Amino acid sequence: MRKTLLKISLNSIAAMPLSVVQAFGALLGLLAYVGSSHYRSLFRPQYESVTKIHHLPFQLWKAVRASGMLFSDSLWIWRNPNKALQLVEIQNWDVVESAIKEGHGLVMLTPHLGGFEIIPRVLAQHFPATILYRPSRQQWLNEVVEEGRAYPNMHFVPTNLNGVRQMTRALTRGEAIGILPDQVPSGGEGVWVPFFGRPAYTTPLPARLANRNNTPVVMFTAKRKSLGEGWLMQANRLAPFPEDATLAAAQLNTAIENAVLVAPEQFIWSYNRYKHPAGAELPPNAQ
């Protein structure tokens, strides 16, 4: 029943213009912030800390509205991929083309910022992409998300050993793989390194995959433009990762920080980036 109702809701969203959907998303963001103390306890301290560190304007309500748009953008892109592709302004595409021409595949990194769901669809216009994702614990929600994300030339694999093997094979074929690098990995699969000045459990997987065969790594962002006007997609090739997992993860977090600073109010501040996953060792300052 929930799945059917959600599908009806998604189809209703698909019929509306992007500007209307984003305005609705902004309202959801405000309601989530005002209505949930847990949401506020995650959102405000993380966002405020970054603005202070980098001497940025503290635009709380703009960031709160943008948090809801992060959700609504994704839904609209899932249901309107062709329309969404027409609303993307792409910069630095030569970075991607030259990386793929090297013949070792491509590791694409896409933080949860702006219209990040459009990025793999842009790449899928040019070459196959295998995307790593974390399944929900609720099967009905998994089915809805997988159906929404389905798109030609895109293949989603779960965050487990089989998924990593499929990504390795994709790189061997010279294809692209996609990873959301700002998610907290499961215990035992990450290392503690700074993220905006605080220890964050971070995955070294992108570095491990890239270093197998000198695969280029590109960080992508999709900054939301004005209401209903789409997104500015930018690509930045990263320097090769060191072999040491801790040093590689620290370099990765620096790259994510730089990506977030493209549009800090559009990042997913409601996500607990600093949580301690079960099975992980304590962070250095807590030992």
Score class of each variant (00 low, 15 high):
residue 1 M to P: 03
residue 2 R to K: 08
residue 7 K to A: 11
residue 8 I to E: 09
residue 10 L to D: 05
residue 14 A to K: 02
residue 15 A to Q: 09
residue 20 V to M: 15
residue 21 V to P: 00
residue 22 Q to Y: 03
residue 22 Q to F: 01
residue 26 A to C: 02
residue 26 A to D: 00
residue 28 L to A: 12
residue 34 V to W: 09
residue 36 S to W: 06
residue 40 R to K: 11
residue 40 R to C: 02
residue 40 R to A: 10
residue 44 R to L: 11
residue 48 E to H: 14
residue 49 S to H: 15
residue 50 V to W: 05
residue 51 T to P: 09
residue 52 K to W: 02
residue 55 H to R: 12
residue 62 K to Y: 11
residue 62 K to Q: 15
residue 63 A to V: 02
residue 67 S to I: 07
residue 68 G to R: 00
residue 71 F to W: 06
residue 77 I to D: 03
residue 77 I to E: 01
residue 84 A to K: 00
residue 85 L to P: 10
residue 86 Q to T: 11
residue 86 Q to N: 13
residue 88 V to T: 14
residue 89 E to G: 06
residue 90 I to W: 03
residue 91 Q to D: 15
residue 94 D to K: 10
residue 95 V to G: 07
residue 97 E to S: 13
residue 100 I to E: 14
residue 100 I to L: 15
residue 101 K to E: 15
residue 102 E to M: 12
residue 103 G to A: 14
residue 103 G to C: 11
residue 110 T to M: 15
residue 113 L to R: 05
residue 117 E to H: 10
residue 118 I to T: 02
residue 120 P to D: 04
residue 121 R to E: 02
residue 122 V to I: 09
residue 123 L to W: 06
residue 124 A to E: 04
residue 127 F to L: 15
residue 132 L to D: 00
residue 135 P to H: 07
residue 136 S to F: 10
residue 139 Q to H: 10
residue 146 E to L: 10
residue 155 H to I: 09
residue 156 F to K: 00
residue 160 N to V: 00
residue 161 L to W: 07
residue 165 R to T: 13
residue 167 M to W: 04
residue 175 E to Y: 13
residue 177 I to F: 06
residue 180 L to A: 06
residue 181 P to F: 05
residue 183 Q to I: 04
residue 186 S to Y: 00
residue 189 E to H: 08
residue 190 G to F: 01
residue 193 V to S: 13
residue 193 V to M: 10
residue 195 F to Q: 04
residue 196 F to C: 06
residue 206 P to A: 02
residue 206 P to C: 03
residue 206 P to T: 01
residue 214 N to T: 02
residue 216 P to R: 00
residue 216 P to T: 00
residue 220 F to G: 03
residue 223 K to Y: 03
residue 225 K to Y: 02
residue 229 E to A: 13
residue 234 Q to Y: 08
residue 235 A to N: 05
residue 237 R to F: 03
residue 239 A to Q: 14
residue 243 E to Y: 13
residue 243 E to W: 12
residue 244 D to T: 05
residue 246 T to R: 06
residue 247 L to T: 10
residue 250 A to H: 07
residue 255 A to W: 08
residue 256 I to N: 02
residue 260 V to R: 01
residue 264 P to C: 11
residue 266 Q to H: 05
residue 266 Q to I: 03
residue 268 I to H: 04
residue 275 K to R: 15
residue 278 A to N: 13
residue 285 N to P: 05
